[in-house]
Each structure stands twice: as C-alpha cells, then as structure tokens.
C-alpha cells in the first residue's frame, strides 16, 4: 500500500551478521549503535532476528563455513529487504582477497544494494549507508528476492514459496 511505504525508511530494523570478518567493522557497527552516534534516532533497532528485520548488515568476506548461514539468513528476511555490505573485505574480499578459504565478497551469494568501503569503515559511513538503504527500501516491492545460490535446496526454497507451490515444486523435481 502506498500509504505505508514512507514508513519503511522511518523504522529500518537491522540484522547484523558476521561472515568471517576480523571484527573491526563489527566494532564500528556497535559504535554507530551506541550513545555517541545514536543510530536509534533514525528508528533503527538491532533485532538479531531475520524475521523482523529490513536491513541485512553483513561484515566479512564470507568464509566457506559461513556461506550457508549467510544464504539461510538472507532467505529468512521477509521482503522488502536491503543488503548492506560493510567494509572492504565484504565488498571485494579486501585484505583476504584470493585466500584459499574465503570467497571474495558476499555478492557472489546474495544481491547487495549498498557497499561501504573502508577497512575498517567508520560509523559515519555506516550511518550514511543506512540512510541510503532506507531510500532503496522505499523503492522496493514485496516481490520475492532469491539468493544467487541455494544451499540445501528444499528447506531454503520452502522458505519462500507458499505450501501449495512448494508441494508442486517438489513434485516437479521428482519427475
């Protein structure tokens, strides 16, 4: 509904996920949430729960162990949703680029809307990014957004399709 759309920007709730970062950017995120930078004045709440969040704040270059969780968490966030990649290593791999046990950035798995540079990125940048994310949030529809890769097919798809569709899907797969 048109009437409600402007309010998306006014209460962006975030989910923060660490996909193998060095914790530098995580500390900056916490600093941004703390009293000095006070993200709550924009209505931001750190929910810690994908089902009630709008903005997915990811740090880290995606280690092999964290890929599936990343995708699973992404699929559990109801649309409309925005992904913010915080820090250089999250956007491109950064200092970890080319290592044997990491992927270079999260956009190989999930679509990213806002990239924040910096190793570590600063609270000011994070606030900027969240404001930008709020705007993008407003322009999005409620259509299903899928990750680029699915791990553990059925459950993950099950997240996004209604039961009937899913039953059909499973059926088709079997044929």
């Amino acid at each position: 509904m048109k009437f409600f759309t402007p309010f998306r920007k006014k209460s962006p709730w975030i989910l923060h996920y660490n996909a193998g970062s060095c914790n530098g950017c995580d500390i900056e995120i916490l600093a941004a949430l703390g009293p000095k930078f006070d993200l709550e004045r924009f209505g931001v709440i750190n929910t810690g729960n994908p089902k009630q969040s709008d903005i997915f704040l990811v740090t880290g270059p995606v280690t092999y162990r964290s890929r599936e969780r990343l995708v699973e968490l992404y699929t559990q966030i109801p649309e409309p949703k925005v992904v913010v990649a915080v820090g250089s290593c999250t956007t491109t791999g950064g200092v970890f680029r080319g290592m044997y046990n990491v992927e270079d950035g999260i956009d190989r798995y999930i679509p990213v809307d806002v990239y924040i540079p910096g190793c570590a990125s600063s609270p000011q940048l994070i606030i900027d990014a969240l404001v930008k994310a709020g705007e993008i949030l407003e322009s999005k529809s409620k259509a299903i957004e899928k990750p680029f890769k699915l791990f553990g097919a059925i459950e993950t798809i099950g997240n996004k399709l209604s039961r009937l569709n899913m039953a059909k899907k499973v059926h088709d797969d079997e044929d």
Partner: peptide, 15 residues
Amino acid sequence: MERYDRIQPYHCGEK
C-alpha cells in the same frame, strides 16, 4: 491462512 508463506524456524542460520 493458506495465503501466507511458510518459513522454517530460526536456528541462527543453521538448517
């Protein structure tokens, strides 16, 4: 309630 989509419970991203 059929029209709402179903989802798995939250287990910190584990399946």
